[in-house]
Amino acid sequence: MTMLFLLYIRYQSGKNSRITYVLAGKCSAGISLIIGRMSRKEFFAGARAELPLLLGVAPFGMIYGVLALKAGLPVSMAQAMSLVLFAGSAQFMAVQLLQNGTPLVVVVLTAFVVNLRHSLYSASVAPYVSHLPRGWKTLLAYLLTDEAYAVAISHYSEETPLEHKHWYYLGAGFTLWACWQLSTAMGIFLGVQVPSSWSLDFALALTFIALVVPVLEDKATASAALLAGAVSVFAFGLPYKLGLLLAALVGIGAGMLGEMVWRRSG
């Protein structure tokens, strides 16, 4: 546990701090006694490969922390969501839906649907982790986010021996995890300082715009977005906010149909 904490410090405080280097040195020595040099090397290589992605993740973590608090969530719950759910988009959506008074079952269903894409990552890394014991699989599954997957799978697909690569995955996943927890905490801290007169509820909608624009990469994804949006407006009056799930289904169907049509026509 102490070692994990020291690792955590090392990644949060930047490479140039002498103190953290001393700490990291001690902890590396400790780790190498227990887990061997190759594993340690892989762990730190994975952590290093994850660092550039943190630039994109940390702002979202902070914004999430601020907005969760402004939406009325208690501090403990805002942070717990980052620990338990550990999924950016789903956390933002849960905050928005809770703020709108959406029935809790619909909140859970929406988070589930949004996170379904992780099953594809799961299928993709499955062959590489099939030899590991159950505890490792459980840990790596918990850490399987978009950003950790991206880094781990590129290492797995290199044609080098598989033996220590799960340490690389762990290094990447743990680094992202630590960044997400810490940036959430910073956001919560900032959120406490923000005066309650600032109406920040619209910032959530703007965050979704920042999330959706980059995924509109072709006609099929654009039609999925447009149709889902339109259905969501016209089905707004449905009970239990079921319009949201209906809209998502219609949008997904429209995207698949669009892809079939446009692919055939070249």
């Binding site: 379904l116 894409r117 959706v212 889902a228 969501s232």
Partner: peptide, 14 residues
């Protein structure tokens, strides 16, 4: 198509 669909379904009514 899940991310564009669900995100837009939240944004549009807002």
């Amino acid at each position: 198509f899940v991310p564009p669909a669900v995100l837009s379904a939240i944004i549009f009514p807002e």
